[in-house]
Amino acid sequence: MLLPEPIQDLINAFSRLPGIGPKTASRLTFYLLRAQDELSLDLAEALKNIKSGTSYCQTCYNITTSGRVECEICASPERDKSLVCVVEEPLHVLALERTGSYPGVYHVLHGALSPIEGIGPEDLRIRELVERVRSGSVKELILATNPSMEGDYTAAYLHQQLLPYGVRLTRLARGLPVGGDMEYADQSTLLRALFGRQEMS
């Protein structure tokens, strides 16, 4: 089928997004074509700003508004700068912030190590983290990488790298999820839940 070039261009652009196939891409394109002008203009504006309007916080490497040196969390005087939580993705900062009770600051690695996929330390913000620890103001690092093989691997690697600096290294606890069922728990989770059991008070 022959389509005018602008339409085909947009379909191609959409289909490069994760989870969007050629059919969805054409559906979205034709929806935008028929919808009110401002919908596509707003979208275009938002797309334009997503890169130009954002930058990395120079302390924790979370995403922040461009022009700022530090993100709101790092700049806040209320936050304990000696407690740093290391996470894989900016979205994980949001998840932790939703708990509303974490007093410290963050460090975003932007991924996890994966020997098989060839994602090495130089692909992540690991050098920056080591630098941050070396500078001496950090007392405790909470390694909050995903409880998956890659996340564990990253935590083990960071542990090895940061041990010489004498900083306290902790890993998020692992155990049974709220609303879960013992019947379905796997051995490694159950074992960790058992070893990490807590006194009832």
Binding site: P115, M149, D152, Y153, A156, Y157, H159, Q160, S188
Partner: peptide
Amino acid sequence: LREELLLST
């Protein structure tokens, strides 16, 4: 294999 970096590698 999950706990030791060298074995994991």
